[in-house]
Every structure is written in structure tokens, then in C-alpha cells.
Design a protein around this nucleic acid. Structure first.
Lengths: 106, 106
DNA sequence: ATATCATATGTCAAATCTGACATATTGTCA
DNA sequence: TGACAATATGTCAGATTTGACATATGATAT
């Protein structure tokens, strides 16, 4: 965004900044969200590769289809704990896990 | 198995770690616990390397010293989310994170 | 089009986790 | 020894996450 435009917007009463700033997200929260996104993608990819349904994965985790759907959709109330348990359940190794974590976001 | 059950059993004198089979801990729960242990170690190591106190780390995370103490002691009620946020707060990169995750337990 | 299976969305009570606080323990100085 | 800082432990009310359920939407057959 052009500086002149930013100034103009600020004059009009807008606060111009990054999305993170707007949402008041701290650095480690941003990093955590990015990490979750990578892992969530991996859950869905791996699950579908195994021709497994959300319902099947849910049952094996003593969870429910709706929760897995929320997980894969990135619902903010899903913990990293559940994501990681799902990953282990679909057979992801710590090595693969590490690889994905250190990879750049798509 | 629920954490509350594990806690109850431990209070009653059982050692959970060594009686996995009897307690019917599933594979992904065991893996999750092992993963947490690795990361917990990394939190303490990195924090002390930075000459940072638990109180200081807690404040920067809007948490409390007692929670960080529990985290570093491996209290079962501490989520992976909090552990990872702590790691990012002490400056761990995703690369380093990945390295530790794929490393063997000491 | 309709039957069927998979996924998405909304709600909620119960389970779990949280920061806060008090207090105890440990370590480290003089 | 005692004072002091750091860490550990216990408790708890409030906040968040959970599985469960109902239901909607989507996808894919026949």
C-alpha cells in the first residue's frame, strides 16, 4: 500500500496495519496458527490418501465426525493436541512430522 | 484414556508410564506424550540458556509462574498449544522445532 | 430425481485447561 | 545461620475445548 494512501486513510480515522495487528495477535500466536495450518493440511492429505472417511478417523480417536470436520476446516477451537493425535492415528511418523513443520507454507 | 483417569490412578499410587498396556494407552496417546516430553525439555533448556526466569517467561505469555512450572514438570494438564507458544516465545524456529521433534528421546 | 455416502455447520452440557493465588520447597548467596 | 530469589505444588473459578447430536450441503451414483 502506498504511504500516501495510508496517510489518507489514517486522516479519515482508519488504523492501517497488518491483519495480525488488527486481530491483536502476538508473534507466537501467529506462529502457532501457521503451524496448525500446515498440520491440518497434512491430516486431510494423509486421511484421504488412506481412503479413510472423517467418520472412521473420528471413531478411531474416540471423537466425532463433526469434530474432525472442524479440525480439517481449521476451526479455532481445535487444539494442537487433537491435531497431533489425529496425525499419529493416520500413521504419520515424527520424521514426517518434522519435515512438514520445517517446510514453507504453500 | 482420559487425563482425569490417569490422574486419579496416579493419586492412588499407580505409575502410568510403566503400565501402558494395563492402562490401555493407545499408540497415538503414547506418541503424543513422548512428543510433549521432548518439547518440554526444549522449553526449559532454551529458557535457562537465555537466563530467563519462569516468572519472566510467564509474563511474556500472559501466563503465570505456576503454570510454567507445571509445564516444565510435565504436568498432564498442560496442552501442546501452550508448550509450543512458549517455545516460539523463547525464540525457537520451526527448523529447530523440527529437529527436536525428529530426534530420539534422551 | 432420489438414494446414499461424505463432509460441513450449529448447538450444548460436560470435560478439560487456564491464570491466579497461596504456600511450600529448593538453591544460593553473605 | 538467615535472607532472598527461583521453582514447585495445591486449589479453584472462569474460560475453553470436547464429543455428541441434529441437520444441512455436497458429491456420486443409478
Amino acid at each position: 500500500m502506498r504511504k500516501s494512501k495510508i496517510k489518507a486513510l489514517e486522516k479519515a480515522g482508519w488504523r492501517v496495519g497488518s491483519t495480525e495487528e488488527f486481530l491483536n495477535l502476538s508473534e507466537e500466536e501467529v506462529n502457532l496458527i501457521a503451524l496448525k495450518q500446515k498440520l491440518i493440511r497434512l491430516v486431510r492429505e494423509t486421511r484421504t490418501d488412506l481412503n479413510m472417511t472423517q467418520t472412521e478417523l473420528a471413531k478411531s480417536l474416540n471423537s466425532s465426525q463433526s469434530r474432525i470436520a472442524k479440525l480439517e476446516k481449521g476451526s479455532p477451537d481445535v487444539t494442537l493436541d487433537l491435531i497431533i493425535r489425529a496425525l499419529f492415528k493416520v500413521g504419520i511418523s515424527t520424521k514426517k512430522l518434522a519435515k512438514v513443520i520445517s517446510s514453507k507454507n504453500a
